[in-house]
Nucleic acid binder design. Structure first.
Lengths: 222, 222
DNA sequence: CTGGATCCCTCACGATACTG
DNA sequence: CAGTATCGTGAGGGATCCAG
């Protein structure tokens, strides 16, 4: 146990002791969007060994970051949900995600995209001021992950699944990153075929204004 | 190498791949305050094995977070300094530090306090609005770590070492945490002797208003 | 003296299998 | 569905050594 301590009386070191281990913050990331079952967490973190997930959940519970809740009937089972203390990590997770997105090159062969990470990414990249008075409903299909976003005068609501009556449906792939970072313009993206639209094409321009990843710091090796 | 990947095409997972390993963010923390030599970093992280420090520095350099710079004469040697990209972690580090400070109980037997972590802690806990129109110079002695802070109408400047002509010198120990979190009032702290003052005692009240740790979320086990 | 590299040992992590 | 049990491996820990 003592091996995990950094030996410093320091809030930051303490934070790393609580949530700094491998996988831990990814569990928090997925719980930011609401309570989840063990199996749902596994689905969002396909590479995590179940014993590690068990261990992380216990550690986070001990740390006061999440709460294990036994559901009453009829939905019997167990869910894990962030405590108030855990929820305060949301802003940090979003910021760190935005920071990391700038180093995100192209996906490696086995990289996956999860619904939760995409929803978080949209929330992290959203710029209310840049959205201006935009008022539109988008559906975003990234591979087989489908999410939707409703923008209404600087407010954003993102959710899982399709959006009936979306003003624009965007079908794309990993190119989404280059699009949001400005490396590829909306026009180019459509022309090269890495983005397909159904609906008003002008709304794509508004989309990339509203959701933005700052330019990559440098060209990075794989 | 592949073992370090989380297998997700996600900015947040990418961030954890870059700076999520053990010790990594503590290195960043110490570099936030300026370029440092290998040996200075060791001093701030007494428990880090030198091979791990070497490895982390290389990884951070590859990640574009820091730069290795060979100093010209007369101060020959090598310093490590954050790149612009690395500097953008400062705000995240401060926030995470403040979050973790709320779970900081009493120091464990071998816990140390470093100058850098104390300076960062003051910057993280500073509330410009709460400082109001305060204008004062403080010297804070925590054990044998000595730092000083100058507050001037919402602006803060913190540095290492004593402050000649300080309006108040605060000598204390781990009790500083309970003081900043409001668990102990300034009056109690002075009366119980866990804080000793030299200068205007009323300035201690202004101090704990200006630097504040939100209350602990729950009582936590050691 | 700074700035590491090298060695070995250990334990946490990770993969797989299995259970209430 | 929600985990526990088992076990191998590799990253971390700690001491030591070396080059400029």
């Amino acid at each position: 146990m003592t091996s995990r301590s950094y030996g410093q009386f320091c809030g930051f070191a303490r934070a790393l002791e609580l949530v700094g281990e491998r996988w831990t913050l990814l569990v928090v990331r997925d719980l930011v969007l609401g309570p989840k079952r063990f199996t749902e967490l596994r689905r969002g973190l396909p590479r995590i060994p179940t014993n590690i997930l068990s261990a992380r959940l216990k550690e986070l519970e001990d740390a006061g970051v999440l709460r294990r809740r036994v559901l009453p009937r009829p939905a019997a089972g167990v869910v894990y949900e962030l405590t108030g203390y855990g929820q305060e990590l949301e802003d940090i997770v979003l910021r760190l995600g935005l920071w990391g997105a700038r180093s995100l090159g192209d996906p490696r062969p086995d990289d996956i995209v999860t619904t939760d990470s995409l929803i978080l990414a949209l929330r992290a990249t959203f710029l209310p001021e840049a959205a201006g008075d935009l008022r539109a409903g988008y559906q975003l299909n990234l591979g087989d992950v489908v999410v939707h976003a409703r923008i209404d005068q600087g407010s954003l609501e993102v959710g899982e699944g399709p959006l009936a009556g979306a003003d624009l449906v965007i079908e794309t792939g990993p190119a989404i990153r280059a699009l949001l970072s400005g490396e590829v313009s909306p026009g180019e993206a459509v022309q090269t075929g890495c983005v397909r639209l159904t609906g008003d094409p002008d709304l794509l321009t508004r989309f990339v204004e509203a959701f933005h990843i700052p330019p990559a710091p440098v060209a990075l090796p794989v």
